[in-house]
């Protein structure tokens, strides 16, 4: 059965072909995720410091969700501390 979420052909094309360019593996992504999120939230250029992370987060939905969650949690805690 095809899931109903593919609302357009661009989305399908992106899912099938993945992000362009080199990307980290899931293991490398997990190892650097905390560093990446802190750089992002500090307003630093995280993608220059950790190349290949952005592409992986776009290509791997599970790692992308882990990234969003860690970013949201740290941002929530930082706001609560101020």
């Amino acid at each position: 059965m095809i899931a109903p979420g593919h609302s357009n052909r661009d989305d399908l094309l992106a899912r099938l072909t993945g992000p362009p360019g080199p990307e980290l593996s899931c293991e490398e992504c997990f190892a650097q995720l905390d560093h990446y999120v802190e750089l992002e939230l500090a307003g630093t250029d995280a993608d220059t410091t950790i190349p290949g992370m952005r592409a992986h987060l776009e290509g791997c939905s599970a790692c992308g969700e882990d990234h969003e969650s860690l970013r949201a949690l740290i941002a929530t805690e930082a706001r609560a501390d101020t």
Partner: peptide, 26 residues
């Protein structure tokens, strides 16, 4: 032994809990 101090220790530790929770819910 893998913690390299590139982030706060708590940020580093949190990712393990988020990973476990997300995988378990899925």
């Amino acid at each position: 032994g893998d913690f390299r101090g590139e982030s706060r220790f708590t940020t580093w530790a949190y990712k393990f809990a988020l990973y476990e929770a997300a995988a378990k819910v899925r």
